[in-house]
Amino acid sequence: TTVEVQGVEYRFDNPEEAEKFAKKMAKSLNLRVELHGNKWRVE
């Protein structure tokens, strides 16, 4: 599972970890998070 934060990609073996990371990043950067296939995008 991939998390893309403002163009930078982070890879996770565990989808739940990816989701937690994406939501945490979105909250700290005041952005929103969307799931596209198996990629979380924070923008």
Rank of each mutant, 00 (worst) to 15 (best):
T1N: 10
T1V: 11
T1K: 06
T1I: 12
T1P: 12
T1W: 15
T2V: 14
T2C: 15
T2F: 14
T2H: 07
T2Y: 14
T2P: 03
V3G: 00
V3K: 00
V3C: 14
V3N: 00
V3Q: 01
V3F: 02
E4F: 12
E4M: 11
E4I: 14
E4D: 11
E4G: 04
V5L: 10
V5M: 07
V5Y: 08
Q6R: 11
Q6D: 08
Q6T: 06
Q6F: 14
Q6S: 08
Q6K: 09
Q6A: 09
G7I: 02
G7V: 02
G7A: 03
G7S: 04
G7C: 15
G7Q: 03
G7W: 04
G7F: 04
V8R: 11
V8F: 09
V8K: 11
E9L: 13
E9K: 07
E9M: 11
E9Y: 07
E9R: 08
E9W: 06
E9D: 06
E9N: 07
E9Q: 08
E9V: 13
E9T: 13
Y10V: 04
Y10A: 01
Y10T: 03
Y10W: 09
Y10H: 05
R11T: 11
R11Y: 14
R11F: 14
F12S: 00
F12Q: 00
F12I: 01
F12G: 00
F12A: 00
F12W: 02
F12H: 01
F12V: 01
D13S: 11
D13P: 08
D13L: 09
N14G: 06
N14M: 07
N14A: 08
N14W: 07
N14I: 08
N14S: 12
N14P: 01
P15C: 15
P15Y: 08
P15D: 07
P15L: 05
P15K: 07
P15Q: 07
P15T: 07
P15S: 09
P15G: 07
E16Q: 11
E16F: 11
E16C: 15
E16A: 12
E16N: 09
E16H: 12
E16T: 10
E16S: 10
E17V: 08
E17Q: 08
E17G: 04
E17H: 07
E17I: 08
E17P: 02
A18E: 00
A18H: 00
A18T: 00
A18Y: 01
A18Q: 00
A18P: 00
A18I: 01
E19V: 05
E19S: 06
E19G: 04
E19P: 00
E19D: 03
K20Y: 11
K20L: 13
K20C: 15
K20V: 11
K20T: 11
K20E: 12
F21W: 07
F21K: 00
F21Y: 06
F21D: 00
F21G: 00
F21L: 02
F21E: 01
A22H: 01
A22S: 02
A22N: 00
A22V: 03
A22G: 02
A22I: 04
A22C: 06
A22K: 01
K23Y: 14
K23S: 06
K23R: 14
K23D: 05
K23M: 11
K23A: 07
K23H: 12
K24S: 13
K24P: 00
K24Y: 14
M25G: 01
M25R: 04
M25S: 04
M25H: 03
A26G: 11
A26T: 01
A26I: 01
A26M: 03
A26Y: 02
A26K: 01
A26N: 01
K27Y: 11
K27F: 11
K27N: 11
K27E: 14
S28I: 15
S28Q: 14
S28D: 14
S28A: 14
L29G: 04
L29Q: 04
L29S: 03
L29P: 03
L29T: 03
L29M: 07
L29H: 05
L29I: 02
L29R: 04
N30L: 05
N30R: 08
N30E: 05
N30Q: 07
N30Y: 05
N30C: 15
L31G: 13
L31V: 07
L31M: 13
L31R: 05
L31K: 05
L31C: 15
L31Y: 06
L31D: 02
L31F: 07
L31P: 01
R32N: 10
R32A: 10
R32V: 11
R32Y: 08
V33E: 04
V33L: 12
V33T: 06
V33F: 13
E34L: 08
E34F: 13
E34N: 09
E34R: 12
E34M: 11
L35T: 04
L35M: 09
L35I: 07
L35Y: 14
L35K: 13
H36E: 10
H36C: 15
H36M: 10
H36L: 12
H36S: 10
H36V: 14
G37W: 03
G37M: 05
G37T: 04
G37H: 06
G37Y: 04
G37A: 05
G37N: 10
N38G: 13
N38H: 06
N38D: 11
N38Q: 07
N38Y: 05
N38S: 08
N38V: 05
N38W: 04
N38C: 15
K39N: 09
K39F: 06
K39W: 05
K39Y: 07
K39V: 14
K39Q: 08
K39T: 14
K39G: 09
W40Y: 07
W40C: 05
W40I: 06
W40R: 02
W40V: 04
W40P: 02
R41E: 08
R41S: 09
R41P: 02
R41L: 14
R41Y: 15
R41D: 03
R41M: 13
V42Y: 03
V42P: 04
V42F: 06
V42W: 02
V42H: 02
V42Q: 03
V42I: 07
V42K: 01
V42N: 02
V42S: 04
E43F: 15
E43S: 13
E43H: 12
E43T: 13
E43N: 12
E43W: 14
E43I: 14
E43A: 13
